Computed example of a mutant assay.
Amino acid sequence: MKSHVILALVALGCATAAAAQDAPVAPAVPVAPAASVEPAAAVPAASDIPAGKGKIIFFRKGGLMGAAISCAVHEKGEKLTSLPPGKFAVVYAEPGIHEYSVKSEATDTLRLEIEPGETYYAKCNIQMGIMAGRPNLSPSDKAGFDAMSAKLKPVEVKAQ
């Protein structure tokens, strides 16, 4: 019986099982992840999409490549958000065709047809340019976002 208590205590992460051998065993309590970890849980769920709108998640991989270049996402000339490396932003949009753009020495545009209640993904990459890096906005998918989401942090979006 004592060996079962010791194994249970070790499994629960007690520092010294020997000191707690005679203590009663409490039921296991789930441990929350560390506060510094912000996985995709920071992304509103599909059920959080406002009625009649679609959701676009813009994201950018972390790293040093193009770190000095901002990936500022615009629509109709208005800046929605800026994506530094390792960040993501959630934008809600009315149904219909939307054109999102990023630019430095050249402009890149991503055209999306937004459906109500749907989630879309767009990835920003920085490519080599003649004088400066060029941001590129391309469609992605949930798997592409999920592969990076544990390392991504949210950024603010202009009021929608």
Rank of each mutant, 00 (worst) to 15 (best):
G66V: 08
V37M: 03
A45F: 05
C71M: 12
I57V: 08
G54V: 13
R60A: 05
A45V: 07
G54I: 10
K53M: 11
R60Y: 05
A42G: 12
I69T: 15
G63F: 08
A46V: 11
I69V: 15
I56E: 01
F58A: 03
I49V: 12
K53G: 00
A41P: 00
P39R: 07
C71E: 04
M65H: 13
P50F: 06
P39E: 03
A68W: 14
F58Q: 03
G52A: 10
S47D: 11
V43A: 01
A41K: 13
G63A: 06
I56V: 15
P50C: 06
G62R: 02
F58T: 06
E38S: 12
V43D: 05
R60C: 10
G63N: 07
L64K: 11
F59P: 03
A40Q: 10
V37W: 02
G63P: 05
S47H: 07
I69L: 15
A41S: 12
P39Q: 00
G63E: 07
F59L: 04
I57L: 04
I49D: 05
A45N: 01
I69D: 15
A46I: 08
A67Y: 08
I56Y: 06
A41R: 10
A40K: 08
R60E: 10
V37Q: 02
G54T: 07
C71H: 07
I57C: 02
I69Q: 15
L64A: 14
A46S: 11
P39F: 05
A45G: 08
D48G: 00
D48V: 03
P50L: 06
C71P: 05
A51G: 14
A67H: 09
K55A: 04
I57P: 02
S47W: 00
A68Y: 14
G62K: 09
K53V: 00
F59R: 04
K61N: 13
E38N: 14
I57F: 01
I57M: 01
G66L: 10
K53C: 02
F59T: 04
G52Q: 12
R60I: 09
A41V: 13
G54H: 01
A67R: 15
G54A: 10
A40V: 06
V37R: 01
